[in-house]
Amino acid sequence: MTPITEVEGRRVALSNLEKVLYPETGFTKAELLHYYATTATALLPHLRDRAVSFLRYPDGPGGQRFFTKNVPPGTPEWVTTAEVPRSSPDSPARMVLVQDLPSLVWAANLVAEFHTHQWLVQRPEEADRLVFDLDPGPPAHIVHCCEVALWLRERLAADGIEAYPKTAGSKGLHLLAAVRGSSSERTSEYAKALAVEAERALPRLVVHRMTKSLRPGKVFVDWSQNAARKTTATPYTVRARPAPLVSAPVTWQEVADCRSPAQLEFRADDIAPRLADHGDLMAPLLNPESATALP
């Protein structure tokens, strides 16, 4: 019988709580749900009012993985949903919004990574985030991403834009900044221009094109996630990796001091102590006053 729990007055069905999702560490589905419930104060503001794509892995990272963008069958009626534009304005999609703790617990029970757009559902025509995904091509790794991130930080600062780093939760880094007054197209153009500039400044280290033959030993500065249809892993989401790694906000000092990949590898049980020590390092992104117009 599927257990039912009450979360802030909502009845949420939970399933397979003893299932081991991460055999490498013995991390169970119950522990995953506990992680999301106890991280909700930091996580929810980064999900709120953003349509969520779920990368689901119900049998753990070693099992089947698939993206769910439309509202999943069986979604409770009290979970907020919204129509969002697709490539064709005549065929909008209806997607989930994770607005509160009950919907977060319900979504966590699906066993999924959370991915969100760089715009709010109220204003899909206006990007409010700028994002760079720094993806290392072996033998390059996150230490090389840190070098690129520091260059991008200074370049963005020259345009009055403050960037905030987080681990990808896999092998690279993400940089996010709050922007205003631009379309996704304009934000993508700006991000591409900086990626090209980074390649010129750091030719031994950076590539701005996705072509696989160009990427070994270099950091791909992926600017394309600024496109309106693209999504990026949300801060604090657990990733479908062999261990329960988290896309964790980090300090710039941690980026500058990184000398080995293990220094910027954070698991689910590392996040509560980090929040106690640092608070939400990406909280400034949530303040409209921190948003900067692109040059």
Rank of each mutant, 00 (worst) to 15 (best):
V221R: 05
R11Y: 07
R229Q: 13
R86N: 13
V71I: 13
P203M: 11
L281E: 07
V121I: 15
I161F: 13
P124Q: 05
C146E: 05
A140V: 01
E189M: 08
D257L: 09
L194F: 12
I4P: 03
V96D: 03
L120I: 00
H144M: 11
R215C: 06
V12W: 06
G160K: 05
L97G: 07
E113M: 12
P72E: 02
G181T: 02
P76S: 04
A198W: 04
Q225C: 08
H141T: 08
C145V: 06
A108L: 12
L33Q: 09
A201S: 12
H141V: 00
W151R: 09
T80V: 15
D128A: 02
A293Q: 05
P23M: 13
R180C: 08
Y236D: 08
Q99D: 15
P261Y: 10
I271R: 00
S91Q: 15
A283Y: 03
T251R: 04
T28N: 03
L55E: 01
V84N: 10
A140E: 09
R186S: 13
E154C: 05
V221K: 04
E18C: 00
G160W: 00
Q118M: 13
L202Y: 08
R11A: 15
P261K: 07
H208L: 02
G9Q: 05
P216R: 07
R186N: 04
P45C: 12
G160E: 01
R11H: 11
P288G: 07
E18M: 06
R56C: 15
R94E: 15
R50N: 03
L176E: 04
P61G: 06
V131K: 07
E6T: 14
L134M: 02
V98L: 15
E126S: 07
E147T: 15
R215S: 07
D100I: 09
T68M: 13
V71P: 12
G172K: 08
E24L: 14
R180A: 10
S53E: 14
H141N: 15
L202A: 06
L14I: 14
P45A: 09
H46G: 06
K218C: 09
A168E: 10
E154N: 07
K166P: 06
V207K: 06
A42C: 08
P165A: 11
L104A: 12
V206H: 00
R86F: 03
M210W: 07
D269N: 10
V143Y: 08
A262C: 06
H117L: 00
